[in-house]
Amino acid sequence: MFGNFGPTEFLVIILIAIFLWGPDKLPKALANLRRFISKARNMASNAAADLSREIGTDIKPEDLNPKAFVRKHILTEEDQEMLTSPLKSTMRDLQEGTKPLKEGLTDTTRELEGTRRSVNRGSLTRDANGSNGTNGSNGSSDTAAEAPAERTRERAATFDDVT
């Protein structure tokens, strides 16, 4: 019932009520509010029962939404099928049209996963052999091929952080 009210809003409402009615009249005002809400609920349920009896079907308060009421009590199944069939065919066409895109994305994801695994395996093998890419004396690379490999490892590490 109070789903949109936070604790601060609720506190502000209570303070305003105390200022308007005062602490001595506030309990009586809250009791009157409770009686009003229960009478409104009873009136709504009685109206739904009367409408149910008049139409001849069971109507719930949520059925009183005009869209739901028309869909449930006025349209026949044929009418409903006639209205929804263009949407179903459009949805089917959209799914068939995007199937190649979905398959291409799936293949690309698999290829990226395989590349990431091979890069990670290669870095683990190099680390296990004790090679860190420098010769220890001047901090330069052992070979020119290790510089791109180092960049690939860095990219794979950032890819692991994202996934």
Rank of each mutant, 00 (worst) to 15 (best):
G3D: 14
G3C: 06
G3K: 12
N4L: 08
G6N: 15
T8C: 00
F10V: 13
I13T: 11
I14E: 04
L15G: 04
I16Y: 03
I16W: 04
I16T: 08
I18Q: 05
G22I: 01
P23R: 05
D24F: 07
L26Y: 02
K28T: 12
L30A: 13
L30E: 09
N32Q: 12
R34D: 13
R35Y: 01
R35M: 03
F36L: 09
K39H: 10
M43W: 08
A44C: 04
A44H: 12
S45C: 03
S45A: 06
N46P: 00
N46M: 13
A48S: 12
D50R: 14
L51T: 01
S52K: 02
R53G: 08
G56S: 04
D58V: 14
K60Y: 08
E62L: 00
E62I: 00
D63Q: 02
D63H: 04
P66L: 05
P66R: 06
P66Y: 03
P66D: 04
K67T: 06
A68P: 00
A68K: 15
A68H: 11
F69K: 01
V70S: 07
V70R: 03
V70L: 05
K72M: 02
I74G: 02
I74S: 06
I74Q: 08
L75T: 02
T76K: 07
E77C: 01
E77P: 05
D79Y: 13
E81I: 05
E81F: 06
E81W: 10
E81T: 11
L83N: 03
L83Y: 06
L83S: 03
L83A: 07
P86N: 06
L87R: 10
L87F: 09
K88G: 04
S89H: 15
T90Y: 05
R92A: 09
L94K: 10
L94G: 04
Q95M: 11
E96T: 12
G97H: 01
G97N: 06
P100Q: 08
P100D: 07
K102E: 08
E103I: 13
G104H: 08
T106M: 10
T109E: 15
L112Q: 13
L112W: 07
E113V: 03
G114C: 07
S118P: 00
S118W: 03
V119S: 02
V119L: 15
N120S: 13
R121K: 09
S123G: 06
T125Y: 15
R126D: 02
R126Q: 10
D127A: 15
D127I: 11
N129I: 10
N129T: 09
N129Y: 10
G130Y: 05
S131W: 06
N132T: 14
G133Q: 02
G133R: 01
N135A: 05
N135F: 09
S137R: 11
N138F: 03
N138Y: 04
N138C: 03
G139A: 12
D142Y: 06
P148W: 04
P148Q: 12
P148E: 05
E150H: 10
R153N: 11
E154H: 04
R155P: 00
A156Y: 00
A156C: 10
A157G: 07
T158K: 10
T158N: 11
T158R: 15
T158S: 11
F159L: 12
